[in-house]
Each structure stands twice: as C-alpha cells, then as structure tokens.
Simulated scan of single mutants.
Amino acid sequence: MLTERQILILKSIIFLYTNYGTPIGSKTLMNEAGLSYSSATIRNEMVHLEVLGFIEKTHSSSGRIPSIKGYRFYVDHLIHPIEIQKKDLITIKKSFSNEFHHLDEIVIQSVELLSQLTSYTAISLGPELKDSRLTGFRLVPLTENKVMVILVTDKGHVENQMFSLPKTIQPKDLEKMVTIFNERLVGHTLIEVFKKLETEIPALINKYAKSAVGISSALDTFILQAGRDQIHVGGKMNMLDYSNGMNVEKFKLIYSLMEDQHDLAHLLTPPQSGIEVKIGQELDDERFEGFSLITASYNVIGYGTGMIALLGPTSMPYSKMISLVDVFRNELSKKVIDYYHTMED
C-alpha cells in the first residue's frame, strides 16, 4: 500500500509527464509540483516507487516515467472527472444540433469531432439494429456487367455496394433473384432475413434462377453485413502525432487494423461499467504497446447499445479525456434517440 507522500509524488510525476512528455526528476517535482519535501526525500520515495513498479527509469535520463502499473493505479484510484471547457461543450452541442438524414451520419460526426477535439483517434460502434426491418432492396444497373445494390431498413440505415456480374448470369435469372429477395425478405426483421438467407433463399435461387447463384452468394454476405454494427474511425492519421518513435511497419499494422471492422470489433469489448480504460498490454495486442483505450457505452432505449472509444498514448491526460468521452456518449445517446423518434413520426 502506498503512503500519502508516495501517492502525491506518483500523481505529480504522472501530471508533469503528461504535460511535458519528458522523464521527471526530483528537481522538477520540487520546482513544478510545489512539493514541500527535500530533494533527498523525493529521490528516496522515487526509488521506492520504482521498486514497487509504479515508475520506471529510462536509459536516456536520470528522471522517471510512469509505468503501466502506475497509470493503472492512477486511473483506478487517483483521478476525478473534470468539467470540460465551455467552448468544447458548445462545439459538441452545436455539432449534434445539426439535422441528420441517416444514423451513420450521426455516428461519423461523433468520431470526427471527438478526434478533432482530442487530437487522438476516435472509434464508434453504432447501436445494434437487431429489431430493424428490411424495407427496401434495389438493384441499379451501372454498366453492362456492374450493378449497385441498395438496402434500406426501417431505422433509416442504408447500405450500398457495387458488384460485378458473372459472365454466365442470365438477365431473366437476375430479375427472378430480385423478385425472390423482395417477396421473401423485404418487410422482415434482419434476424428473420439472416435465417432465410441460410435456409430457404439458396434453394429458391437454385430452383428458379440457377445462373444467379454466384451473385446471390455475394449478396447474401452483403445483406448480413448490413445488419451488423457499423464501426467508424476518425483521426487515424493522428497516430503519427502521438506515437513518437513508432516505426513505419508498426504504423502500417495499426493503420490496417483500423480498416478492418472484424479486428476493431474485437478491440472494442463492451465496458463492464459505463466507462472503461485499458492501458498498453491490457489491450491484448502487442501492436498497441504504448497506447491506451477509453471505451464508453451508450444506451438507446428500445434500439440497443452503442460504444464510443478514444485511442491515444498512455501519457494522455486521463481526467480530461474521460470527461470528454462521457459527454460524447451522453450527447450521442440523446441524438440517436431523437433520430429514431423522428423516423417514427
């Protein structure tokens, strides 16, 4: 158990390192943190903190930096939410006061603004759409061998994707396939759609539109994806600013992960409480050594739960960032609920 003096020194080291980004020594603690202890006393306590694993020495300086254990103790026991700046709150509320025509627009706006306000990378996972119904299925010819498929749900969720048609497909079979999809899938919940795509639809396509089997399989995957949670990322390039010393190969690996919804979905595990902080190795991915992830869930009553997250350096100012994420999740929840209510009117 740490003494009050050790706690104060640890808290001061983290505060100063967050602000300066350089190892902190005893003189800096005396001059900048206003600690009323002698330099020798501070040095002795820093040695104890290092032995206990809360701070560590870098090879290039006599100062100390917080360890993962130190940050964990700080986040769990020492920080308190702070009131965000008035100008930031005005910016957030003004942003969410805009008119949105699709749910994705709200989610995208949230991550773009959060990444701008923090200069970190923001990630958002839209609320679940399990009870949504498929209300529209259109196939729009683009060229001789390409079509655009458009799906719409009753919650205003829109998906579109371009497909290349197999050379063997017959126009009449393509028309039959569209008819089957409209007759058997439109009007049903996405859960029902998923089941039908796995059971009766393949048999119907094979029976009445054999040459469309190829494009039908691709469409099956597309429709399944339309009902899953949509992940959006803002500020991916910000990683270059807050990841000093990151080599090009590591940046490429992390950047590619940001493009993969499957990998990101594993990274964004639902927080056990409203807001959760994972630091460094707690992310269970060696690519994120030196990173921290703040994740918050937001409830949309009647429609599911979404998540918003902030990825930044372990040296981030946690109190400020947690407060910002908390405001965002509350504003995002209210805006999504308002959006759904508008859609129902």
Rank of each mutant, 00 (worst) to 15 (best):
V47I: 14
S60T: 14
K69C: 01
G63N: 05
T41F: 12
L52K: 14
H59Q: 12
L49M: 01
V47Q: 08
P66H: 11
I42W: 09
L35A: 08
S60G: 00
K57I: 08
S36F: 06
K57S: 10
G70N: 03
I55H: 09
T58V: 15
N44R: 15
H48F: 05
E56K: 14
S38T: 15
L52H: 01
E50W: 00
G70T: 03
R64W: 07
S60L: 13
F54D: 06
P66F: 12
E56S: 13
E50D: 02
S62V: 09
K69N: 10
I65F: 00
A40R: 13
G53L: 11
H59V: 11
F54R: 13
R43Q: 14
G53R: 06
K57T: 10
A40Q: 13
T58P: 08
R64A: 11
N44S: 10
K57G: 07
I68W: 02
F54I: 03
T58S: 07
I68D: 13
A40N: 12
E50P: 00
S60V: 10
E50C: 07
S60A: 12
M46W: 00
E56W: 01
L52S: 07
L52V: 00
T41E: 07
N44W: 03
H59R: 14
G53Y: 04
S67A: 01
H48M: 01
K57R: 15
R64S: 07
S39T: 10
E56D: 05
S60C: 00
H59L: 15
I68Q: 10
S61K: 03
V51I: 06
G70R: 06
M46D: 03
G53V: 05
S67F: 09
S62A: 11
L35C: 06
G70W: 02
E56T: 14
G34Y: 14
S39C: 07
R43T: 13
L35Y: 07
L52A: 13
L35N: 04
R43I: 04
Y37G: 03
G63V: 04
H48Q: 09
L52Y: 08
V47W: 00
S61Q: 05
E45T: 00
H48P: 00
R43A: 12
G63R: 04
S39E: 15
I68P: 07
R43C: 02
I55N: 00
G34L: 09
I42Q: 11
A40G: 12
E45Q: 11
Y37V: 02
Y37P: 04
I65Q: 05
I65M: 06
F54T: 00
G63S: 08
G63K: 04
A40F: 04
S38R: 04
I65S: 05
T58C: 14
G63I: 10
S67I: 01
G53K: 11
G63H: 10
T58L: 15
I55P: 07
S67C: 04
L49E: 03
G34F: 13
A40S: 12
G70V: 02
L49A: 01
I55G: 12
K69V: 02
T58A: 03
N44A: 11
